[in-house]
Write a protein that binds this DNA or RNA. Sequence first.
DNA 1: CCCATTTGATTGACACGTGAATCATCGCTC
DNA 2: GAGCGATGATTCACGTGTCAATCAAATGGG
Lengths: 168, 168
Amino acid sequence: MATSKRRSMPTRRELAIWRGYIETYDILRNRLEARLHQDSELSNGDYRVLLALSEAEEHTLRSSALAAHIEWERSRLSGHLGRMEKRGLVRREPCAEDARGSQVVLTDEGARAFRASTVPHLQAIKETFLDAFTDEQLDVLGEATTALRAHLGLPPVTAAGGSPRVEA
Amino acid sequence: MATSKRRSMPTRRELAIWRGYIETYDILRNRLEARLHQDSELSNGDYRVLLALSEAEEHTLRSSALAAHIEWERSRLSGHLGRMEKRGLVRREPCAEDARGSQVVLTDEGARAFRASTVPHLQAIKETFLDAFTDEQLDVLGEATTALRAHLGLPPVTAAGGSPRVEA
DNA sequence: CCCATTTGATTGACACGTGAATCATCGCTC
DNA sequence: GAGCGATGATTCACGTGTCAATCAAATGGG
């Protein structure tokens, strides 16, 4: 073809698809976060931390291991744990093997809050997102996501650890 | 069928698709934001504000009109304008017709910054997102988005105002 | 054994987002 | 034209996110 497509600007149609994708996502995410918060007094971040601790041995993880598991910056986790600790969802203890370290422990209250949140949250995901699509649409969505992840150089979707996660 | 699907929990496959969608989106968004910031020293929010002002009569809008146009909370816009004003991208003037009001004006520097950012930004959208898909995939993505928006009770994607927007 | 480097974690400064409270002005009604 | 509710905008308190700086403990090389 005469006019190369490389380095060209997006077409009007492409931009509309882009905008639809990005804007709709934002709204979806906000609604789910709002609903989680309303149902359970938890933010996405709280949920993510609680899930990781729930699945951990003894409901405990080293702070750095937790950060790695949920793919957060350490400073982000630090601040978040501080807020969660104030609310009694989590406790921090000095670490026996490494005096620098910090052991994050799920409290009973944290476990209770998490347990209470999960069913409504999964149902919200179903009602808000999954129920919007036919089975075929879900398939193509999955394929499109796979293509996009490959394009971005990301690994295939993490093998789900039995439970859901709400946030990247 | 014997087992009703209503109110049931998501299947493993559904959850994987959900997680792929949501996690991939976050990464995509962060990458584009980082690139915009790196190329142009602008955040998504800055871009959005500058775009709206660029397209406005006299490069000026009432603060409330601007907030409505880009669908932001007024307090959000207020804070953001404060930061942009400090950087010289924008100016606030008292409003002649309504002494309560505030007139937001694009400065020359703001106009220059916006102009310089748009081509690289559109190319980043193309390279990062659009180029990941075949034409057919773009179509089905668009359809899926339409279905999701309908499910969420949202209006169809806004008729694009000639120029792109990065954020909802 | 001591010191330099690395590592675990926190802190501080800032950008960004939301919702509630504030405050002045506007415009309507009497 | 005095009062009063609606409206335009900002401010405050807080949660959330990034990055750079800090600081103590661990650790490996001489």
